[in-house]
């Protein structure tokens, strides 16, 4: 059976979610593997959310916020970026490929960029294959 990756995307309400919405209203076609979770700001994405997503079987996790300088809460996206870099280092130590976690800035007008991002990220994850952390944790004794 062909591998259908499961991807979780955390999108900030003000820019990225609106951008994703635009991709929808503009009827752009993009890969259906992403489950979007709306958060008020990318600064709300607790690293716990990301690790839980992997723990529960996500093959890839996408973090999206407003472009630098555009966060509606001033600093949220910078905070997100710093967490992202720490998370990258940490997941690598845990044997999870760093490509499985991605951070991108998507503005409210970037519907097209959003659609392209989803396609390219889905492709990356499809090439990597399933993330085995859930299976390992459940089956190893």
């Amino acid at each position: 059976m062909k591998f259908k990756p499961q991807i979780i995307a955390f999108l900030c309400n003000w820019c990225s979610y609106t951008g994703a919405d635009l991709a929808g209203t503009a009827r752009l076609k993009y890969k259906p593997n992403v489950r979007a979770i709306r958060v008020m700001c990318s600064g709300r994405i607790d690293p716990t959310f990301v690790l839980r997503a992997f723990r529960r079987g996500a093959d890839g996790v996408l973090l999206c916020g407003c472009h630098p300088g555009d966060c509606h809460y001033q600093e949220g996206n910078y905070r997100c970026m710093r967490r992202y870099h720490l998370l990258q280092k940490y997941i690598q130590q845990m044997g999870i490929e760093t490509e499985r976690l991605k951070l991108e800035w998507i503005s409210a007008s970037e519907g097209k960029q959003y659609a392209e991002l989803i396609d390219s990220f889905t492709e990356t994850i499809t090439e990597l294959g399933p993330c085995k952390i859930k299976e390992t944790m459940e089956n190893l004794t």
Partner: peptide
């Protein structure tokens, strides 16, 4: 931890 071991 949430990820309680290294992936093999």
């Amino acid at each position: 931890a949430i990820i309680r071991r290294k992936l093999l």
